Computed example of a mutant assay.
Amino acid sequence: MKLSIQKDLLINAINMVVKIADKHNQRVAILENIKLVLEPNILTLTASDLEVELTATVRLPDNACIKAGSTTLPAEKFFGICRALAGDIATIDAEDGRCIIGSDKGKYNLKSRPAQDFPSIGVPNNTVPLSIDRTDLFEMLGHTRFAMATQDVRHYLTGMLLEINEDKLTAVATDGHRLAVAHRALSKSYDSWAVIVPGKAIVELERLLADLIKESKEGDVVLGIDNDFLQVSLNFSDEGELGGISTTLTARLIEGRFPDYRRVIAVNANRSAVFNKEELVNVMRRLSVLNSKDSPGILFDFKELDRVKVSVRNSYQEEAEEFLPVNYQGEPLEVSFNEAYLRAVLRTLEGQVYLGMTGDVNPVLIHQVNDEMNHLYVVMPMRV
Rank of each mutant, 00 (worst) to 15 (best):
S4G: 11
Q6M: 12
Q6D: 11
A13N: 02
V28L: 13
V28D: 08
N33E: 03
K35D: 07
L38I: 04
A47D: 04
K67E: 14
S70M: 09
T72M: 04
E76W: 15
C82V: 15
I89N: 06
I92H: 00
G97M: 02
V123S: 15
L130D: 02
T144V: 13
R145G: 13
A147W: 00
M148S: 03
D152E: 12
R154G: 05
E163L: 08
K168C: 14
A171V: 11
A173R: 03
V181H: 03
A182T: 07
R184G: 07
S192A: 14
R207D: 07
S216F: 04
D226Y: 04
L230S: 01
V232F: 08
E241Q: 12
L242P: 03
T248V: 05
G256V: 01
D260R: 07
D260E: 08
R263F: 10
N268H: 12
R271I: 03
A273K: 01
V289I: 12
N291M: 12
L299I: 14
D306A: 09
R307E: 15
V308S: 01
S315P: 11
P325F: 08
L333S: 00
V335Q: 01
L342T: 00
E350P: 10
L355P: 02
T358M: 10
G359P: 08
P363W: 02
I366R: 00
L376K: 04
